Amino acid sequence: MSSTTSLYRSILCELRKSAVSPRPERSRAIITHLREALTNPRISQAQRQQDALNALTFLHSQRSYEELLVRYNPLHDMTPEERVKATARRVGLDVPVEAEEDSLKNS
């Protein structure tokens, strides 16, 4: 049981590291389902440990993927307009200012 417990704690630690929202706002459903899966008597101990190890590997890989995405693709979390402006700045250009509809109707 100690290895399952240590895997459970590692999963909780990985969930904490990859969390986007502050702790009080996080859903308890993930932890509840995880605890139920790791204490389910119908599943063998070896299968529970394998499932916990798979979950831990997935969470760690997902967090690493997000870190690499931010590092090597800094435009991934921008809106399309911001992405166009940033790309234009990268090559030394500025995006022209668009005219507003009200000024077009009055002229």
Rank of each mutant, 00 (worst) to 15 (best):
P24Y: 04
A29M: 10
L15F: 10
R9M: 07
P22Y: 03
R35P: 07
A19Y: 05
Y8F: 13
Y8V: 08
R35I: 04
S27M: 01
T32Y: 13
P22M: 09
Y8N: 06
K17C: 10
E14N: 02
R28Q: 14
K17T: 08
R26E: 08
Y8I: 06
S21L: 15
P24T: 02
A37G: 08
K17Y: 00
L15S: 09
S18R: 14
P22V: 03
R28C: 11
I30A: 06
Y8E: 03
E25P: 06
A19M: 07
L12N: 11
E36N: 07
E36H: 12
S18L: 06
P22R: 06
S21H: 14
H33E: 01
L34T: 03
T32F: 13
C13G: 01
I31A: 14
L12V: 11
R9C: 00
I11K: 00
L12C: 03
A37H: 12
C13E: 14
S18K: 01
R23N: 03
I30E: 05
P24F: 02
S10Y: 01
I30H: 05
A19Q: 03
V20G: 12
R26M: 05
S21K: 15
Y8R: 03
S10M: 01
P22W: 04
I11G: 01
E25M: 14
S21Q: 14
H33K: 07
R16Y: 06
R9D: 07
A29D: 12
E36D: 14
I11S: 05
I31N: 10
I11E: 00
L15Q: 10
Y8G: 10
E14Q: 02
Y8S: 00
P24W: 08
P24V: 09
Y8H: 02
I31Y: 12
R23A: 12
E36K: 13
R16M: 10
E25V: 06
E36C: 13
I30V: 08
E25D: 02
L34E: 09
K17E: 12
S18T: 03
E36W: 15
R26S: 00
T32Q: 15
R9Y: 05
L34W: 00
E14F: 01
P22E: 09
S27D: 12
R9L: 12
H33L: 02
H33A: 13
L15Y: 01
H33P: 12
E14H: 07
R28K: 01
P22H: 00
I11Q: 01
L34K: 02
L34F: 05
R16Q: 01
L15G: 07
T32R: 04
I11Y: 10
P24A: 02
A19P: 04
R26H: 04
S10L: 02
E36V: 07
L12Y: 02
P24C: 04
R26V: 05
V20M: 06
I30D: 11
P24G: 03
R23Y: 15
P24D: 02
V20N: 09
A19E: 05
R16W: 05
R16T: 05
A37S: 12
K17W: 09
L34Q: 04
R28D: 09
C13T: 11
E36F: 13
S18E: 10
V20I: 08
